[in-house]
């Protein structure tokens, strides 16, 4: 498990070339900046189509949308064959890539335990193309392809909990992180980068344009997701060992998270209650797992 990091330990140097081409207040840009602060040299960065975040000072390559897992596989196997295991293959992908079109390939790479680190910046829809539904979109969220009208209440399905899908494959390390908890995020990247095998870090990165909130509130929104239990921060090792990194005495109501975002504006009290119950149940699950120090569901 990652070791606690303090603000004083956060390196002053940047690993990115800035400014980037993201929108104002972009959560993904924050995730990239924090990640590459601690990634260090000797990294080959992999991308698939997604929103721009931040260019990093490492060699980088882009693959086809469905090529996340295989491109990391190709790189890490070639590095092994050429005897350059000092170099790390790192993927920096969006939620549409990781949860939808590249999900199968990543599952296969995880099952083969390829030596690669996957970082997912999860902004819960295809934001690069204008905010269409992805496997990361939460239930009831309005997207440009889950429009709200007399016949539709927004997205019909719950957000995929991809961490547990990867856990089922027993990969060495999985973590969730949030841009509102930068030290926790960087500690996880720092820990994961040197593990051998397949590692996944899922970072929730709010999108002011797609979620429709004031760009100044990106961190506020990200923080309330964690504090309300909508985006719990945890680590899973070898598909079993479990640790919850942030445990408030009491969860904040999910309305604190939903309210600032216009994508949830249409939700009725019944729908909010349904989501609250769902969130509480999921939270109970992770609490129990944390107590048992292993996945219990």
């Amino acid at each position: 498990m990652s070791e606690r990091m303090t603000r004083a330990q956060v390196p002053l140097e940047e690993g990115i070339i800035f400014p980037g081409s993201t929108c104002q207040g972009c959560g993904a840009a924050m995730a990239a900046r924090l990640t590459f602060k601690v990634m260090g040299p000797n990294v080959i960065r992999h991308g698939i189509p997604c929103c721009p975040d931040q260019s990093s000072k490492s060699p980088s390559t882009g693959s086809v949308f469905e090529g996340a897992g295989p491109s990391l596989t190709g790189t890490s196997r070639a590095l092994k064959a050429l005897g350059r295991t000092d170099i790390k293959a790192v993927g920096f992908f969006g939620d549409g890539g990781v949860y939808d079109i590249s999900f199968g390939g990543l599952m296969a790479a995880a099952q083969r335990n390829e030596n690669a680190l996957v970082i997912c910046k999860d902004n819960e829809a295809y934001m690069n193309t204008g905010g269409q539904h992805s496997g990361g979109t939460p239930k009831y969220a309005e997207t440009t392809t889950d429009q709200v009208g007399p016949n539709s209440r927004g997205n019909k399905f719950h957000k995929i909990r991809a961490a547990f899908a990867f856990a089922a494959l027993g990969v060495p390390y999985i973590a969730t992180a949030s841009v509102a908890f930068p030290e926790d995020l960087m500690a996880k990247v720092k820990y994961a980068k040197d593990i051998e095998g397949f590692r996944v870090i899922l970072i929730q990165t709010p999108c002011p344009v797609g979620w429709r909130f004031d760009p100044a509130k990106t961190i506020e929104v990200a923080r309330s997701a964690v504090q309300s239990g909508m985006w719990p921060l945890y680590e899973i090792e070898n598909g079993s060992t479990f640790k919850l990194n942030y445990k408030p005495k009491e969860l904040k109501p999910i309305t604190e998270y939903l309210k600032p975002q216009a994508r949830f504006r249409h939700m009725t009290e019944t729908e909010i209650n349904e989501m609250q119950t769902y969130t509480n149940q999921r939270w109970e699950e992770v609490l129990r797992a944390d107590e048992a120090k292993r996945l219990t569901f």
Partner: peptide, 25 residues
């Protein structure tokens, strides 16, 4: 998000003009 605040020697932030997009975070 942009590393647009430089941490100065006197332990204070300073805006890097070319990098700030004015998001207000």
């Amino acid at each position: 998000p942009e590393a647009a605040l430089e941490w100065t020697a006197n332990n204070k932030p300073a805006m890097i003009s070319r990098a700030c997009k004015g998001c207000g975070v």
